[in-house]
């Protein structure tokens, strides 16, 4: 089992997807039979702004190699301005991580509307490729004995 793991690194990516757009895009990508990697673990949330940044780093600490926050395009928020707030929160958490010497690219904020099934599949593919290239995250070793 371990040997297999070493052969090909299959990242775990937790996605927090807005109910009104990115989740619908995921459904659309599925019904259109577009291929996207099984590394994504989607969680449906009512708005990108309901995701406190602590949940993003919590996912990374519990073992995810990356997290995606998917929201509506600017101006299209179902709750008028939730995505702008989400953007500020992501900017804050990314700045904290970068400031302490972590890889801030392991958190991704992406705007994917309900009609953008192909974009959803493309982003998931490209991001998985990127994380595969980066290798496993060492943020999961926060509060553990592992790591270097």
């Amino acid at each position: 089992m371990n040997e297999e793991k070493e052969k090909e690194f299959e990242p775990v990516i937790v996605g927090f997807f807005c109910n009104w757009c990115t989740s619908a895009a995921a459904d659309m990508a599925g019904t259109a039979r577009l291929h996207y990697p099984p590394s994504i673990r989607p969680i449906r949330v009512m708005c990108s702004s309901t995701v406190d940044p602590v949940y993003l780093i919590r996912a990374l600490q519990e073992g995810a190699d990356a997290t995606i926050l998917g929201g509506c395009h600017p101006g299209d928020c179902h709750y008028i301005n939730g995505n702008y707030k989400a953007r500020r929160r992501v900017a804050i958490v990314k700045t904290v991580l970068k400031s302490l010497g972590f890889d801030d690219e392991r958190i991704l904020l992406e705007w994917i509307s309900g009609s953008e099934g192909p974009k959803f599949a493309r982003v998931m593919n490209e991001y998985t490729e990127l994380i595969k290239k980066k290798g496993p995250s060492d943020f999961k070793y926060i509060d553990s004995l592992g790591g270097d």
Partner: peptide, 28 residues
């Protein structure tokens, strides 16, 4: 399971995560 995966976890848990979480909430 986390202890399996991370070659041991520290107890009490979330000691460092607490500081990072606090930074995110009040740092600005």
């Amino acid at each position: 399971r986390w202890a399996d995966e991370k070659s041991g976890i520290r107890l009490p848990t979330d000691k460092t995560l607490f500081h990072l979480g606090r930074l995110i909430h009040m740092g600005t």
